[in-house]
Amino acid sequence: MTSNDAPQSPLYAKLLGETAKIGWSELERFFARGILLHVARDLDLVSVAEAIANDDTTQVAQWLSSGLVERVQSETAADFAARDPELWAVVVSPWVCVQERS
């Protein structure tokens, strides 16, 4: 967090506490249900979850249109299954937001 950022909201802190490392095998069922959102590495996973929870449609639409947030596609799912990378996830019902960390 930089000095220019606003202080964390209670919701951000709550979501941060619910964010965890997870294996692809545990996420496959959410992918199958079409509720798994892939968050680009250059975004803050928890900030994305917070925007979704707050129904910030303008910001979320911006991320969706730029491809920074998208439903996990079959190619991405196959890649995750093959590589089993380090993934972090947070639930913002009905969505599960997932991000690969290197």
Rank of each mutant, 00 (worst) to 15 (best):
K14V: 01
G17C: 07
F80R: 05
D84L: 11
W63P: 03
T76K: 12
S74H: 08
V92P: 00
C97L: 15
Q62G: 13
W88A: 08
D55N: 12
V48N: 03
D5I: 07
A82W: 12
L15A: 02
R83C: 09
D5A: 15
A61L: 15
W63M: 06
G67R: 04
F80W: 15
R33M: 11
D44A: 05
E100Y: 02
S47A: 13
A82R: 15
Q8S: 06
D84Q: 15
L11Q: 03
D79G: 04
T76F: 05
L11R: 06
A40R: 07
E86D: 14
V90Y: 01
D79F: 10
F80P: 00
L15G: 00
W24Q: 08
R33A: 11
E86T: 15
S102V: 06
R83L: 13
R41A: 15
S66Y: 09
V90P: 00
D42V: 02
S47E: 14
A13E: 14
G23K: 12
V98S: 03
D79I: 10
R101P: 00
A89C: 09
R33T: 03
D84W: 08
P85K: 13
A53L: 02
S9R: 06
I52L: 10
I35S: 02
D55T: 11
P94W: 06
L15I: 07
C97V: 07
V48L: 05
G67D: 11
Q73V: 07
E70T: 05
A6W: 09
A89Q: 11
K14I: 01
L45I: 02
A81E: 15
G67F: 14
W88Y: 12
W63A: 04
P94G: 06
A82F: 12
P85Y: 09
N4R: 14
S65V: 11
T58F: 13
P85L: 10
G23L: 11
D44E: 07
D56N: 14
W24D: 04
A6T: 06
V96D: 00
A49E: 00
W88M: 10
V48S: 02
R29F: 03
V91A: 07
V92H: 01
V96N: 01
T57H: 12
T57V: 15
R101L: 05
V92T: 09
E50R: 05
V96P: 00
A89D: 02
Q99I: 04
F31A: 10
Q62C: 14
T57G: 09
S3A: 12
W24I: 05
S93Y: 11
E50I: 01
V98A: 11
V48I: 04
A49P: 00
A49V: 05
V60C: 08
W88T: 06
G34V: 06
A53N: 00
A89R: 08
V69K: 08
P85N: 15
S93F: 07
A32M: 13
R83P: 02
I52Y: 06
S47F: 02
N4C: 10
M1G: 12
V96C: 01
F31D: 04
P94H: 06
S93A: 12
S65H: 11
D44Q: 05
G67M: 13
S66Q: 15
T76W: 11
W95I: 00
L16K: 10
K21S: 11
S74I: 04
V46P: 00
V48A: 08
K21P: 01
E28Y: 04
W63F: 14
E75I: 11
V46T: 03
L45W: 01
L16E: 10
G17R: 04
